[in-house]
Design a protein around this nucleic acid. Structure first.
Lengths: 118, 118
DNA sequence: CGGGATCCGACTTGATACTG
DNA sequence: CAGTATCAAGTCGGATCCCG
């Protein structure tokens, strides 16, 4: 984590628990949101930025590059004028959707729980 | 993360996607590890610290307090000399175990995948 | 349009020492 | 044993400007 995020390959290469490995990939402030947006759609850079309130282009680029390196996201560039770049999940990236949905499911229950506590 | 971790209650109170809510609770560098350790055991402060390589007492305290506030972890103090404090998951905390296991499962597959890519 | 480069502050985290 | 206090270091992320 979470970020806080990317454990480098040089420090202890095997994680204590594999949960860490997953959170290194999908954790952080923006990645879950990006993945959530790409779950059902292919999106361009600008569209992505608009769905993510307040993200700076720098951050968006950085997160997308990391997701790309991890084999989760595919970046397709069309050399037109003006340029167009589309982002989508790779097949491997799609394997994480159920995990995201499990997280979402629990999040919903958790928020309900917090509401009833008020 | 997951931290970079705790989204304050003041900024937009409803998340874009509930995945965020979950990662606010279990994300970050240490929390998944702590939860993983408490999954099957009740542990004392020192035992926890020993299973988490390199965590400082300050960090451990902080993470445990946050988990406690979120209703995930129970802190039980025995006023003995020397003092003894035991940490365990609450019933609500246990509901997150399947989510952790889903994360772990994917993490294992992800690490395999990365190995074969080398 | 889709970024890269640079700068900078705020917040997180770590190391170390100390205490009831 | 189970922390707190203090200080230093690191990281994250935003702002701004620029380019092909």
């Amino acid at each position: 984590m979470i970020t806080q995020n990317k454990t480098t390959d040089t420090d202890n290469c095997n994680y204590i628990c594999p949960v860490e490995a997953t959170l290194d990939v999908i954790g952080g402030k923006w990645k879950p949101l990006i993945l959530w947006q790409l779950k059902d759609d292919i999106l361009r850079f600008n569209s992505l930025q608009q769905t993510l309130p307040g993200i700076s282009p720098k951050m968006l680029t950085k997160q997308l590059r990391e997701l790309e390196e991890d084999g989760i996201v595919k970046r397709e560039m069309y050399p037109e004028i003006p340029p167009r770049v589309e982002y989508s999940l790779t097949d491997f990236g799609r394997t994480i959707i159920p995990v995201l949905e499990a997280l979402a499911q629990w999040g919903i229950e958790y928020m309900d729980q917090k509401d009833t506590m008020k």
